[in-house]
Simulated assay, not measured.
Amino acid sequence: MAESNFLLFKSADQILALEAEYSRQVVPLEQLYGIPGVSGAILGLIPAAGRALPVIDLVKLVGLGSGAANSLALICEIDGESLALPVEQVIGFVREEVSYDSDLLSEEMLIGGYFGGGHKGRVINPNALMTALQNRVLSA
């Protein structure tokens, strides 16, 4: 188990962490274009980096609470696929030692305990995120 850098952010009133290597940029979530006939885990598309990226609904995908309105989108690239996660607030980076199990989200834990007292949050397993998304899209 090695230490990694994580990006901490708030989504659906919860603190979440994603390994920094998967994050590309944060953009305003201004224009969200719906996709006819698509429901479930995809909220719509946003223009970013010269292409249209799917915005993933973490509330539906992993059962998070509804939370506040998201004004930002975290652009991620996982396994060569680009996607956007709705974000209320970006908190910053921390270095943490985390081992993944097969769950999409870890149990709640103290993340970045040495930095400002840390934050109680959950870590996103990027591989499980992609698997869950593919399963939800294929079954929709």
Rank of each mutant, 00 (worst) to 15 (best):
A49N: 09
I35G: 00
E21L: 05
G44M: 09
P28A: 11
A52R: 12
E30C: 08
M130Y: 02
P126W: 00
G117F: 00
R51Q: 14
L133M: 03
N125M: 00
P28C: 10
L45M: 09
L53I: 05
V55Y: 10
E96R: 09
Q14V: 06
S106I: 01
G118K: 12
Q14K: 10
V137W: 04
L110S: 13
P126Y: 05
V123C: 11
G118Q: 09
F9V: 04
P47H: 14
P36T: 09
G37L: 11
V26H: 09
A12V: 02
L32E: 00
G112W: 06
A132M: 06
N125D: 06
F9T: 10
V87S: 09
A48D: 12
G92D: 12
M130G: 04
T131W: 04
G118I: 04
L8R: 08
C76N: 07
L138V: 04
E77V: 05
Y114D: 15
G65K: 07
M1N: 15
V98W: 10
E81F: 02
A132Q: 06
S102G: 12
D79M: 13
Q134N: 10
D101L: 08
A84W: 00
A41W: 03
S71E: 06
R122E: 03
P47I: 06
S66M: 05
V38S: 04
E30N: 11
L61P: 06
V27E: 02
R122A: 05
L64Q: 08
R95S: 15
L104K: 06
E97W: 02
S39G: 14
G65N: 10
F9P: 09
L83T: 02
N135W: 01
L83P: 03
L7F: 00
D79C: 14
Y114G: 15
N5L: 15
R95L: 00
S4L: 07
V27R: 07
L7H: 07
Y22E: 05
V98R: 06
F93T: 14
D103N: 15
V90N: 02
Q25W: 01
Q89G: 13
N125Y: 00
G113V: 13
